[in-house]
């Protein structure tokens, strides 16, 4: 049995939170903005196939930033939960609060269990009601906190800069094109200056209470987004993110044998199972921790 080093719970949680926060801040920001007819969700996402915003149920939408594989699993779980509840009871019984709770419990349990890597995701569950006062935006963080946002909310990337821009420019009860204009300008706003995000790099969806169908979610195609935004300046693509671009390059190999580096792939004259620092062949016994 090995004796682990003592780490205070405060430190453990802080390390895990730092880890998750860093992962989330690496991506681009996503903004949810309430407008006259519902809730607008906008993010900069050059991929047309891998969505960050999608439909959960009649009046519910899901938006996420962070690790794609992790939030995609949560999205599918949400669709299954919602469809199963709607089928077993009634479509009206599927609520944003129920789904936000399920997500919060899941993220919270994963965050506080020692054996699992915390999820590097942040989620919005948006719900559109019969009137603007009934609209809801739930924010779920990596550690399972739930917050109820009003007006607008931003997550991921440099969310503070985007939030400060929206705080000074957001107007309640705006039309769709006004709200979209403000949200897109906010996403293009940085400390160094403003950038016009090209229409084809925007992922835009709305929960529109004026739709006649029971399903209020609708994705806005680039042509429609361009029409709503009207004339803007010269568009500029975003600078590539640190993990954008080329697929993983794989491990680099070094041609020198460094005994202190257990991962180098050149073993020199020593057998693989040796003490990496002094080069002594191992005795065949499993290694034991030094006495305290």
């Amino acid at each position: 049995m090995s004796t682990p080093f003592y780490v205070s719970p405060e430190q453990l949680m802080k390390d895990r939170a730092d880890f998750a926060r860093k992962g989330i801040a690496r991506g681009r920001s996503l903004a949810a903005v309430q407008y006259a007819d519902g809730v607008l969700l906008v993010t900069e996402n050059p991929s047309q196939a891998l969505h960050k915003v999608s439909e959960l149920y009649d009046r519910l939408a899901f938006a996420a930033v962070g690790r794609y594989n992790e939030f995609e699993n949560l999205r599918i779980a949400g669709v299954r939960l919602a469809d199963m509840r709607g089928y077993a009871y009634d479509r009206r019984d599927v609520t944003g609060r129920g789904l936000a709770n399920a997500y919060a419990q899941t993220l919270g349990t994963i965050f506080s269990s020692g054996g699992e890597k915390p999820y590097e995701v942040e989620i919005f569950v948006a719900e559109v009601g019969a009137t603007a006062a009934d609209d809801q935006i739930y924010r779920l963080t990596y550690e399972g906190r739930v917050a109820d946002e009003h007006g607008f909310a931003v997550m991921g990337g440099d969310s503070e800069t985007v939030t400060s821009y929206l705080t000074s420019n957001y107007a309640a009860g705006a039309s769709l094109s006004e709200a979209l204009g403000v949200a897109v300008a906010a996403l293009g706003h940085t400390g160094e200056g403003d950038r016009v995000i090209p229409v084809e790099d925007l992922e835009v969806a709305v929960l529109d209470r004026t739709r006649t169908q029971p399903r209020k979610f609708s994705r806005l195609r680039p042509a429609r987004v361009a029409e709503l935004l009207g004339p803007r300046g010269k568009p500029e693509h975003a600078a590539p993110l640190p993990d954008d671009g080329a697929p993983g390059a794989g491990a680099t190999t070094s041609s020198t044998d460094d005994p202190s580096d257990p991962t180098d792939q050149v073993s020199g004259h020593v057998a693989p199972l040796e003490n990496p620092t002094n080069g002594e062949p191992s005795s065949g016994e499993p290694p034991v921790a030094p006495p305290l």
Binding site: N73, L74, I76, A77, R80, L81, A102, Y103, Q105, T106, T109, I110
Partner: peptide
Amino acid sequence: DARIPGAFL
């Protein structure tokens, strides 16, 4: 374990 059951995820 109040999380969403594994089958859903």
